[in-house]
Design a protein around this nucleic acid. Structure first.
Lengths: 131, 131
DNA sequence: CTCCATTCAGACGAGGTGTCTGAGAATACT
DNA sequence: AGTATTCTCAGACACCTCGTCTGAATGGAG
């Protein structure tokens, strides 16, 4: 449930996604996935991205043998939350409600997601939609 | 209903908000609002921002007397839409639905929004939740 | 000790942002 | 008319971020 301090860039996000898929990994493991047959330069690139992700409080580092093991400390939902709040702050005076309304009007969820929505609405009904 | 081609920066957004508030305006009018007692340098700043907004298809220009009159051709909802779709593309494989469920989960929708949600669910039910 | 992989510090070019300068064209004032 | 004021355009600028990369130091494994 950490909050990313700043926005995550595309290259950084690619590393994060790999971390989500692989679980805690070393730079080498990540590099081999992101740049198959990569040169030593790519290794350093991944390392720099991890360094910046660490500064943004998105990953944490721990020694594993001689190498370092990195693990993600943010989830997709954290990034979604951060993005949504940023958009609300810029465009809606900080309120998330207009975003919700907009999504309700423009979204085409699939069957499973409709089910989830029904459940959520039912729950909201039960607890009596407080402000 | 235009679509902004690229993201709008903070300074550009400030100009846009002034345009939304004032309606079609000249650079002078905008400058006086954004930089009260502003020097001639500020005038050029606003002009550059309008030039970039025009390149991003967010404003249009028309001669008014000797000066130019600028008017916004995007609404807040266009920027919201653009932002939301960008977030969905980056974080949710392009689907907006996860954003919706996230908002429903993390905000306390008021009565009106719960009603909106119910209507959405009903509508989706009727048309048999397509992808 | 030598070799190899990892780590660290820092550079680099490209691109974007916000600001500003200078010169030119059109208008108003006297 | 001639001067001054306003607007416009083109372009520079310093700063920052992003993605990439180089070089040297470190530390085990053979």
């Amino acid at each position: 449930m950490s909050r990313p301090k700043h926005d995550v860039t595309d290259a950084e996000l690619a590393v994060l996604k790999e971390l989500w898929a692989l679980g805690p990994s070393t730079i080498r493991e990540l590099t081999d996935r992101l740049y198959p047959g990569g040169a030593t330069a790519h290794y350093a690139t991944v390392q720099k991205l991890l360094e910046r992700l660490e500064a943004k409080r998105c990953v944490k580092r721990r020694g594993r043998g001689r190498a370092n093991e990195y693990r993600a400390v943010v989830e997709v939902t954290d990034l979604i939350d951060h993005t949504l709040r940023g958009a609300a702050a810029r465009l809606c005076g900080g309120s998330l409600a207009p975003l919700l309304t907009h999504l309700v009007n423009t979204t085409q969820p699939d069957a499973a997601q409709v089910e989830e929505l029904k459940r959520l609405v039912k729950r909201l009904d039960r607890q009596g939609g407080s402000a």
